Computed example of a mutant assay.
Amino acid sequence: MKLAVYCSGSIAKGAADRGKLTWTTAERMEVTKGAAPHEVVFLTPDDPITDPGNTLGQFGRDMYQVMVASAVIVDARERRGLGIGVEMAAAGGFGTPVIVVAPPESKYRAAVLEYRGAVVRDYVHPHVAALATAVVDDFAAAGAALAGLVATGPLPAKAAVPDWLAAAIGEYRDNVLAGDAPMLRALRELAAVPG
């Protein structure tokens, strides 16, 4: 079975981002190995967009990818920003499962954490815990969790586009998608677009 994964995580936007952990071929290969025998098609937010000045369309592209994905895999190996939280919340609205790669003793997980005047054991950041379908240690485990999602049957049908995302997804679908070669290629691979 072909499964689409939206690669959520930091994007290297310039020289200041060179030291950040981002999705690379290595992470994609680990997910692919873990998901075997399923084939994985990756939807990547860092593909070039035809009109970078169209910020609504650019946001719409990310949300469209989250919507059509079989699952969102979040790279939470280190501190992440606003965009990842929005992607996780949108995934919840669509009914897209969220798998979070948060290694033990990282920003979002700890065996023991002093938190709000208490000691918490097996801490997972509250936003991650609330929005994640699974929290795993590494990308191979994320692939295995992805395979596990479909092991018992098909994924549930997607929910309708929430009102707060309708304008952005509409902008992308109506004015950007036709010129988005990487996304059109991925959709053809997933047999979601005829021709």
Results as ranks from 00 to 15, higher is better:
1 M>V: 09
1 M>P: 12
2 K>P: 14
3 L>R: 04
7 C>M: 13
9 G>M: 04
10 S>A: 14
10 S>K: 15
11 I>N: 05
12 A>N: 14
12 A>Y: 01
15 A>V: 13
16 A>V: 08
16 A>D: 10
16 A>F: 11
17 D>H: 15
17 D>M: 08
18 R>S: 07
18 R>L: 09
19 G>N: 11
19 G>H: 15
20 K>T: 00
20 K>C: 02
21 L>N: 08
21 L>V: 13
24 T>A: 07
24 T>I: 08
27 E>D: 01
28 R>C: 11
29 M>S: 10
30 E>H: 13
31 V>I: 15
31 V>T: 01
31 V>L: 13
31 V>H: 14
32 T>L: 10
33 K>R: 15
34 G>W: 11
35 A>N: 03
36 A>G: 09
36 A>Y: 11
37 P>E: 03
40 V>N: 09
41 V>T: 14
45 P>N: 06
50 T>Q: 12
52 P>Y: 10
55 T>I: 12
56 L>P: 02
57 G>P: 10
59 F>M: 03
59 F>T: 02
59 F>N: 04
60 G>F: 10
62 D>V: 03
65 Q>N: 05
65 Q>Y: 09
65 Q>M: 15
66 V>N: 00
68 V>R: 14
69 A>C: 11
70 S>F: 04
71 A>P: 05
71 A>Y: 11
77 R>K: 12
79 R>Q: 09
80 R>A: 03
80 R>D: 00
80 R>M: 07
82 L>G: 02
83 G>L: 04
85 G>F: 05
85 G>V: 06
86 V>D: 00
88 M>S: 02
88 M>Q: 04
88 M>E: 00
90 A>F: 08
93 G>D: 00
94 F>I: 01
96 T>P: 09
99 I>D: 08
102 A>N: 02
102 A>H: 01
103 P>H: 05
104 P>F: 02
106 S>H: 05
107 K>W: 02
107 K>G: 00
110 A>H: 07
110 A>V: 03
111 A>H: 10
111 A>R: 14
115 Y>F: 14
115 Y>A: 02
115 Y>Q: 06
117 G>P: 12
117 G>K: 10
118 A>R: 15
119 V>P: 09
122 D>C: 05
124 V>I: 15
125 H>W: 10
125 H>M: 02
128 V>T: 07
130 A>R: 08
130 A>N: 10
138 D>K: 02
139 F>Y: 07
140 A>V: 08
142 A>V: 01
142 A>C: 03
144 A>E: 08
147 A>S: 09
148 G>P: 06
148 G>N: 07
150 V>T: 11
151 A>H: 13
152 T>P: 00
154 P>M: 01
156 P>F: 09
157 A>T: 05
157 A>V: 02
160 A>W: 04
160 A>H: 07
164 W>F: 13
164 W>K: 14
165 L>G: 06
168 A>Y: 06
169 I>H: 10
169 I>K: 14
171 E>T: 14
171 E>D: 08
172 Y>E: 01
176 V>R: 09
181 A>S: 08
181 A>M: 11
183 M>C: 13
185 R>K: 12
185 R>P: 02
187 L>V: 00
187 L>M: 13
187 L>Y: 14
188 R>K: 15
189 E>A: 14
